[in-house]
Nucleic acid binder design. Sequence first.
DNA 1: TAGATTGTTAATCGATTAACAATC
DNA 2: TAGATTGTTAATCGATTAACAATC
Lengths: 217, 217
Amino acid sequence: MKRNSRVSTAVIRRLPRYYRHLAELQRKGVVRISSSALGKSMGLTASQIRQDLFCFGGFGQQGYGYKVDSLKEEIGEILGINRGHTVVVVGAGNLGRALIENFRFSSNGFELLAAFDVQEKMVGSTITGIPVYHADQLEAFLAEHPVSVGLLTVPISVAQCMGERLVSSGVKGIWNFTNSEISFPDSDVVVENVHFSDSLLALSYMISQREAQEETV
Amino acid sequence: MKRNSRVSTAVIRRLPRYYRHLAELQRKGVVRISSSALGKSMGLTASQIRQDLFCFGGFGQQGYGYKVDSLKEEIGEILGINRGHTVVVVGAGNLGRALIENFRFSSNGFELLAAFDVQEKMVGSTITGIPVYHADQLEAFLAEHPVSVGLLTVPISVAQCMGERLVSSGVKGIWNFTNSEISFPDSDVVVENVHFSDSLLALSYMISQREAQEETV
DNA sequence: TAGATTGTTAATCGATTAACAATC
DNA sequence: TAGATTGTTAATCGATTAACAATC
């Protein structure tokens, strides 16, 4: 069933979108969808959707389309949603707290185990039920609990250092919100960056283009 | 100087990274850099960097390389950092507050003017100096102050609706943190999505791949 | 069965990489 | 000047789109 020899990052980046759209369709009670209908609602070509899914196997039925439920399940499986992944938050400042309180870790297949910070007033407290430990206890905690991903929301100045501590304690991935470029050359950890400023600057470019266009018209 | 007939999104997405790296080099006191040195530090080929910059004009000197200061300036100009862009935050919950308090709007060329929320206890207060108004006053405020970008951090249920109010009041771009797909077919507003869950699921895929590999080895 | 729609291969398009003349 | 490195065109590679036979 799995073809998958080497799936391009372009495809990988679309998988979560498929998953999200299918979940939405499911909520609306849609049972089946064709590649062309899904493409129309997502702004992709039917061909691309079939090609993308083809990387992983045949999930549809000829003449019928795709069953929303089972396609969503399959994509969830591919994304690793049922693999029992776990996550800890390193840095319980504003952003860390916002993510702990608002982000639906569990619906993305992650169990949030704990948060770490250096501020004494936070240590020992809980945030929506999640215990906050002192950063000193990071290694001890990771030795006891297998953690898949470390979510980094610390100040830039300590980003690389805390990242290294997570990596040497065996996390598989780092979800980097620090707006700094961190890297771990001698390890095979996966770093996923969320660079707010890159996102805003790309938006800035696009609206500047439009403005410039209007000015010359 | 500007060639720019139609710059691919791949290039546009790299521009903020260049800007960030050049700012970093500047801070370190580096005066000049060659495409090959910059490529090495960013994980790109020298050829790609020259090709990317070639879209906008010749910023380097043959036999010498690029001056860090002026290249950073040029890219900042391209990104629209000096265009006097403004932004308002719609939704001053945890995430909105975290962004107001932590995100360096001004170093990305944006002036943060105000925040809006419906919670009575927030209305009238300020967050690090930024006034919080009631969402009812959104249109009135936008009529008075030209706003380039609306930063959406409202619950999913009202995302589309608040987006439409921003668009009909004339914002040029929407920076969408709501984890929902919003669209404005009859307008030429630019929507930039920050989908945390897409990012985490891509990471989930990548670590799941590694895990599966280890299991079969 | 006829119609619809996938799975899958082939064709096209665009992005990246290579090459090298221009020139600082 | 000689050496280095860009600007810019050409070649390659990969991703998207088109096409259509298979089949539900």
